[in-house]
């Protein structure tokens, strides 16, 4: 009887223990999604910007618009090390400054993907050379594709 029982045990051990590691399928990047619009009467229209540059203050050597000849949407990378970050927006030879402030919190996406940093209570300050106004649509900056701000430009 003892031999039988140990045989059963051996077979059981040989047939257990197979596991697989699931991969991360969720988006990992966390950026502030912005859209440029102009008002035509009461209707807002997406605005395609050409030859516009945007870079972070302190990162003058690195354009976030690099490689984009024209765009109507842009993703601003929030600074994970501080509760605010600033960008320069250059368009038509004029410069505007945008300052984003937020509260940071680390969230576990999944154990396969790891942790991401989210930014809550988004607030925006800006100069008004090219920018008419900015509407905050969603105050949470996360790994989702939801639009966070609309940047209204003056009509020329």
């Amino acid at each position: 009887m003892r031999a039988d029982l140990l045989l059963v045990l051996t077979v059981f051990l040989m047939t257990t223990g197979c596991q697989y590691a699931p991969k991360c399928l969720e988006p990992y990047d966390v950026t502030l999604h912005a859209r440029f619009v102009t008002l035509a009467g009461t209707q807002e229209k997406d605005t395609l910007l050409q030859n516009a540059d945007i870079y972070g203050i302190g990162r003058e050597d690195s354009l976030i618009t690099a490689g984009k000849e024209s765009f109507s949407k842009i993703d601003f990378p929030p600074d994970p090390n501080r509760n605010h970050c600033s960008f320069i927006f250059r368009y038509n030879g004029l410069y505007d400054t945008l300052v984003f402030s937020y509260l940071r919190s680390v969230r576990l996406l999944s154990y396969e993907c790891g942790y991401i940093q989210e930014y809550r209570n988004l607030k925006v300050e800006y100069t008004m050379h090219q920018i008419d106004s900015i509407a905050v649509v969603d105050t949470l900056i996360s790994n989702k594709d939801d639009e966070n701000i609309k940047i209204y430009l003056f009509r020329h």
């Binding site: 990992y28 972070g56 990162r59 690195s62 976030i64 990378p77 929030p78 600074d79 994970p80 090390n81 970050c85 680390v106 576990l108 790891g114 942790y115 991401i116 940093q117």
Partner: peptide, 19 residues
């Protein structure tokens, strides 16, 4: 706990924290 946690950021630089 999770320590360290590195939040990758290719523009501003990585942020190291803990949970």
């Amino acid at each position: 706990s999770a320590d360290p946690v590195v939040v990758r950021n290719g523009y501003w630089g990585d942020y190291v924290t803990s949970v």
